[in-house]
Design a binder for these strands. Structure first.
Lengths: 226, 226
DNA sequence: TGTGTCTCTCTTGTATCTATGATGGTGGGA
DNA sequence: TCCCACCATCATAGATACAAGAGAGACACA
């Protein structure tokens, strides 16, 4: 009843999914950078499947704006647009604040449960932060923010927010690395966000989130223009 | 250099695009309602193409959350979730307000140009509103709101907002119809939104937008529970 | 040397074919 | 009568075959 595209790996991942993961990883990790051209055949060969599932993967990646397909010519990796970091951060801020305003419509019990879940994801960040394990931290960070949005119950927002994650990862792969000393600070800032939610203080949440994202954004900008 | 998926119809639309348009229309227009099952073969036959391009169309529709594919079983039209109207409206509000806050960072000349463009789309609404041409109005309405977001220059937001349009159309097809007398009111409210932008009054814009969407939402809810 | 054209190759778009999983109905047994 | 196993059917997943568009580069000519 459940399909195989949900990330749970009990089944030996369908060919299309393998092709998708493979290509997505190539892009998100930065090994394939913006403007680079790839062909279905090439990926098909490397993954060991026919072109059909690769085509499906490419279509998915195009839907996620990571790839752009040019008819009869090939696929190019969509380059990170100049203002994209700012774009992503603004949308994240808007959606997360929306989510929190919605969260606060929950009654105390439900909110407490949400807060508890968030604190769990917080704890999951400490390890990677202390180990300066940037990739793991990036995943945990993403999971944390997504958890806030998911808790709000707006499925549309959640899905969109999730798709922003890939773009974020792609940028983070370049940007977070140079500043691993910030990881613990980020965990702390996340804690403050949860506190604000727990205390039903929207204004404080919004302010803290803005500061948090501003700092991330500044880190990005700083890393990009050294 | 331009691909054939951009809606310009000089070329005899690719098979995949025809299949996509056909199926999307079926869903958005409500002729195919939530939960209904369709198969690639069925659409392939009706459109007169093979299953391959239909498959591509289905994948695109799945990416847009209009269709859900179940491996080896078929595709079901994603039903309108109970709270979805509210979800969409909240996101629209958040993104549009974000867009306007960003618009107001433009200098006076640029802002004036944006306002002029918006007023043009306003004029395009009057005709359909007077004629009580609901489908045409729905398109114009969508174009208006999208224009605000597009003008902000956040490409990500624009794309996402656009994708909300289909869902909105789908709901509007059911909801706006019963209240054609509201169309002219909506045009008027749109005018107020533009005025707020022109006067750089964010607070007023946000308030007016909320009222505008609330009214739409109430109209929806009223239409759904008669 | 510069330019226009022509072809050759690469890549996608579509069709078709095969394999396999899912489902629902049927019939036998408890 | 009810339940379970089996099988026919159907739909997709993936592979392969084929056609056609787009570009790069060779080549002829001015």
């Amino acid at each position: 009843m459940e399909d195989t595209r949900d990330g749970s790996e009990r089944a030996p991942l369908a060919a299309a999914d393998r092709a998708y993961e493979f290509t997505r990883e190539l892009i998100v990790s930065g090994r394939l950078s913006g403007g680079e051209l790839i062909s279905e055949g090439e990926i098909a060969e490397r993954v060991g499947v026919s072109r059909t599932p690769v085509r499906e993967a490419f279509l998915r990646l195009q839907a996620e704006e990571l790839l752009r397909l040019f008819p009869k010519r090939g696929a190019v990796v969509v380059p990170l647009a100049p203002g994209e970091g700012e774009d992503v951060l603004e949308i994240r801020e808007a959606i997360e604040c929306l989510a929190v305003r919605r969260l606060l419509r929950l009654d105390d019990d439900d909110l407490a449960r949400v807060v508890e879940r968030l604190r769990e994801t917080l704890r999951a960040q400490s390890g990677p932060a202390r180990r300066l394990d940037t990739p793991a931290f990036a995943r945990a960070d993403q999971a944390f923010h997504l958890a806030i949005v998911a808790a709000s119950g707006n499925a549309l927002a959640e899905r969109f927010y999730g798709s922003l994650g890939d773009r974020q990862l792609r940028m983070a792969a370049q940007a977070l690395h140079p500043r691993p000393e910030r990881l613990e600070v980020l965990v702390h800032e996340h804690g403050a966000l949860v506190d604000a939610i727990a205390q039903r203080d929207v204004a404080r949440f919004e302010e803290a989130l803005r500061a948090h994202l501003d700092a991330t954004h500044r880190a990005l900008a700083a890393a990009r223009r050294p």
